[in-house]
Amino acid sequence: MKHWWKFVAVLFVLYAIIAGFLMDVPALPILHETIRNLYFHVTMWMAMMVLMTISLIYSIRHLSGFKNEHDIVASEAANTGLLFGFMGLVTGMIWARFTWGTWWVADPKLNGAAITILIYLAYVVLRNSIDEEQKRAKVSAVYNIFSYIMLLVFLLVLPRMTDSLHPGNGGNPAFSTYDLDNNMRMVFYPAVIGWTLLGVWMMTLKIRIKKIKLKKGL
C-alpha cells in the first residue's frame, strides 16, 4: 500500500464535508451556523501554507544544487498553493458577508491574505517573463525565498501591532472558544489533514504532468 495517504485524504475530506454540515455545533452569538465554515475556510489556509512551505524548501534545495526537478516541485507547489489561497479568500469573504456584513474590511489578517495572493501571482508573472530555463529557475527561487520571509514578517509580526476583527485578535471568539467544544475538534483536525493531503496529491499530479510535458518537448 504505497498510496495509503491518498485514501486517507479522500476519507478525511469526505468526513469533513459530511460531518461538517451535519454534526452539532455550539450556538455562538454572531457566528451561529456559519461556524461550520471553520472546516473549510481555515483548512484552506493551512493547506496553502503547507504547500507554500514545500515550495520554499524546494527553492532552497534548487539554489544549493541547481537540479531542474527541484524547480518543477517549487513552481507546482506554488501554483497549487495559489488555488487553495483563492478558495480560502472566497470562503473567507462569504463568511465575512454573513458575520461582519461586508465582503471585505481593512484588517491585518485579510490584508495579509491579499498580499499572499499578490506575492505568489507576482511569482507566476516573474516565471512567465523569463524564457531561459535555468535562469528562470534561479531567479524565481531567489524571489520565492525573499518573498516568503517577508510574508512571514507580515503575517506573524504585524497583526500583533494593531487590533483586528478577525478571530484570534482583539477579544474576538477564537480557537480557544472553539476548542472547548470537542465535537468541532473531532471534525476540524481531520479536515486540516485531509485538505492538506489532497493539496499535496494535486501537487504531485501536476509535477508528473509537467515532467511528461518536458520529456515530450511540449
Binding site: Y143, S147, M150, V157, L158
Partner: peptide, 27 residues
Amino acid sequence: AIASKAANNLTLMSVLSFPVIIPLLII
C-alpha cells in the same frame, strides 16, 4: 536585481516590489 533578469522589467519592478514592501510601509 531580480527584475533586471527578466523581460519587461520596469513593470515587473513594481509588481514584484509592492507586495513585499507593504510590511515596511505600514511600520
